[in-house]
Amino acid sequence: MTRKSITILGKTLGDLSDPRVLAAYAVVYIGVLGFLALAFGQNIIPDGGGDLPVAEQGVYMFGAFLALSHLWALGIGLLLFGAVAGANTLAREAERGTLRIVLSKQVRRWEVLLGTFVGITLFVGLVGVANALVGAVALFWFSDVSAAALEVGVFDALSGTVAYALFVGGFVASLSLALSVFTKNRLQTALGLLVVPALYFALSVARLFGPEFYEDNALYLADMSYHFGNAFVVIHEAIGGDLPVEAQQALSIFSGVYDLPSGENQEALPESLELAGHVDPMVSVSVLVGVAAVSFLVALVGFQRTDL
């Protein structure tokens, strides 16, 4: 990165640190988190986990933490923040007209784009990690697991959490830049970015309540929770090794990545669950990375040509 990109990066991080926006987001995030943590803490961890050995508590805590992270902390919750963050950088500058003076200086347009991209990625990633840690605290609060279970249950997943949070941050950053360049409007950029969490939520519900309809109409192709779920699993397994079956089971409820055992097999879990297999996980990762890369390139080319 050039020195000027780093200057832009610093400004972007400053813009995203608006305390009013962060406070409003925190209220929404924690409000929903409370309900989810109560549900996950009491149901994914059997009977709250208080009667289980510490090692087993840790395993179930790990599964609950991953499931909560995928659905809310690094899922819909983070994507909602990403929509607001993405709209409050380049789109805001273009809409307000502050970009004219910036681009009249000896800073190349790609430097502005790169600095903004890295800034959004890092900040959204940081918020994601914070979301996950607050989520872990909430899970701990609403379950009966002991503090010793947190080492296996949460800290072992931290590296994968950081990596995945940055992955989501980069995806949001790329999309937001492309939308900002072409709309030059905060509201339109935010609405465009909100399509992702909207699909994430809507198709999760479709999968849960209408599995046949979901499969017959190949809704998994547009299901962001499924594709992000695949990426989630790929990244966590690449960093921390194979996920235990309890974690696979917990994760699959809202991601659909694995086939959940049915009928008489529900009591005795296998060593590992089968993938649902609608789309190969690496294909999901490639598509998400591809969409992000294409979005960034489109933003780069468009920004070079855009009149201000």
């Binding site: 020195r3 000027k4 200057t7 832009i8 400004k11 307000r96 007209g97 502050t98 004219r100 003076i101 910036v102 200086k105 000896q106 800073v107």
Partner: peptide
Amino acid sequence: EFYESMSGRAYLVYMGKLA
């Protein structure tokens, strides 16, 4: 158009770095 929450000095320093 300027960054309204920035001071005049901070704004000029920021633009100076970009320049």
